[in-house]
Design a protein around this nucleic acid. Structure first.
Lengths: 116, 116
DNA sequence: AGTCTACATGTAGGCTGTCTATATGTAGAC
DNA sequence: GTCTACATATAGACAGCCTACATGTAGACT
């Protein structure tokens, strides 16, 4: 279970929740499928370990942003998560926060006087 | 000592080092001035506490990216930090990492199929 | 003289999210 | 019978950012 190419995991902190919500925006998914979706959407850059995802999903459910139910398909049992109303709002908030976050950090990193 | 507007501190994780290096790129500064520079460059969004900055500066010095010396001006003593060669390389690496980081996270947050 | 604010550095300890490692079990292919 | 992919879950380590505290100087104002 190797780690993401060049992406340091400290940097992921505080952005996992938003990504999980984003992945679940238009379809309910179970944990394992969420990990695959993250890998695909990131072009292979993101390989999030189960020890990160499962606790995070439970946290988001406790917070009311996700709801889960067990779904059995072809002999396989999966806990499937979907966004709640609160989850949709949290996703919108996460996107807005991401925007200001990148503006601020990006601006500092580039240095003063650079607009682009 | 109030906190940054809307910026959650988990999100800062792993990006402080790069910002500190960026602020020191063209001129040596002491800790207190670095905090002010971060506030100015971020348009007031970033108000980093001393308990974050001073340990971080020491860490970066131990890592060889910064060098420090005590400078006394007008009765005031300040530990002034400057970038080393290794620090300049680390800053370049941080900028490159920031680019891929925002590409990856931004891409996932936006959802599939969106180029812009 | 006393007080207050801005300047200036520093540490101890807490919090919490991510990671590693481990445990458990099913389905299907070979 | 074994191996791989699928699938969920938890315990404990790790590390960076934060709060709170401790300490001290310079200069302005009263």
């Amino acid at each position: 279970m190797r780690q993401n190419e060049g992406l340091n995991s400290d940097a992921l902190r505080g952005h996992m929740d938003g990504m999980l919500l984003a992945v679940l925006e238009h379809e309910p998914l179970h944990g394992y499928a969420i990990i695959e979706a993250l890998r695909e959407r990131s072009g292979g850059a993101l390989d999030v370990p189960t020890g990160t995802v499962y606790p995070a999903l439970r946290r988001l459910e406790r917070a009311g942003h996700l709801a889960s139910e067990w779904v059995t398909t072809g002999g396989r049992s999966r806990r499937t998560y979907r966004l709640t109303g609160s989850g949709h709002r949290a996703l919108a908030a996460a996107r807005s926060a991401w925007q200001s976050f990148t503006d601020v950090i990006g601006g500092v990193l580039r240095g003063p006087g650079q607009t682009a």
